[in-house]
């Protein structure tokens, strides 16, 4: 009985760890946060700093190319492409702890915006796919 309880507990923990992000966090973002804008939007220097921060803090889970690793979500997906800067700032501050994403609130807020500026500088997967398809079409 005791062994069963322990197994169930371990299974619950394991499944919580393995669950991929389903984007449900987007529904929890308050309207005020959703509308926030990135003070560093479009600034190449901020994106360069954001790249260093991303490599230090995010790449091990989300991959050096931000396409995700080990069931952890890609940050070049359509969902992220369509999320507002404010929504990304909200998830960085609060995390999604039950789905494995920690809170990064102890990184100063300007640094979190710099990470978002970097993410915005990456071509989304949809754009890459479109380009690849076009190149494929052009092939004889």
């Amino acid at each position: 009985m005791k062994k069963n309880s322990i197994s169930v507990f371990i299974l619950l923990i394991a499944s919580a760890l393995l669950m991929a992000s389903d984007g449900s966090w987007l529904r929890r973002v308050p309207e005020g946060d959703r509308k926030r804008t990135n003070p560093y939007a479009g600034q190449a220097e901020a994106a360069a700093a954001g790249k260093i921060l991303f490599m230090d803090n995010c790449a091990k889970c989300h991959g050096d190319d931000a396409r995700g690793r080990h069931n952890r979500p890609s940050l070049r997906s359509e969902r992220i492409e369509h999320a507002t800067d404010g929504e990304l700032a909200w998830i960085l501050r609060n995390g999604n702890t039950w789905k494995g994403m920690p809170s990064w609130s102890s990184l100063p807020e300007p640094e979190r915006w710099q990470i978002i500026a970097y993410l915005r500088s990456l071509p989304p997967d949809s754009a890459t796919a479109t380009t690849a398809t076009r190149q494929g079409d052009e092939r004889p």
Binding site: A46, I52, E111
Partner: peptide, 11 residues
């Protein structure tokens, strides 16, 4: 507090 709140663009 960190001594700087904004990261530098160079390592």
């Amino acid at each position: 507090r960190p001594l700087a709140l904004v990261a530098s663009g160079r390592s």
